[in-house]
């Protein structure tokens, strides 16, 4: 079984570009309906399928995603 992972998204720095969403192989991410203080919809987790692959984090132009993966 794939290892489990988790992501923490700094929603105030997110610009809602959606590049992370298309990079996630497990469709874990989506855009919020809420906006942050700059008015951007931000990336949110919508399921627990994260494997901690870090694909989303390494394509995020604004380096707002931190990734964890079980040992």
């Amino acid at each position: 079984m794939a290892k489990r992972g988790d992501v923490v998204i700094d929603i105030e720095k997110c610009k809602g570009c959606e590049v992370c969403i298309s990079a996630c192989p497990h469709e874990v991410l989506s855009l919020s309906s809420e906006v942050n203080s700059k008015g951007y919809h931000y990336a949110v987790k919508v399921n627990s399928g994260c494997t901690g692959c870090a694909n989303c984090a390494i394509v995020c132009p604004d380096a707002v995603i931190t990734v964890y993966r079980e040992k």
Binding site: R4, G5, D6, V8, G52, A54, A57, I58, I65, T66, V67, Y68, R69, E70, K71
Partner: peptide, 10 residues
């Protein structure tokens, strides 16, 4: 899982 031990990317 969110603890420094499991950190893979920041």
């Amino acid at each position: 899982l969110v603890n420094p031990e499991n950190l893979v990317y920041k």
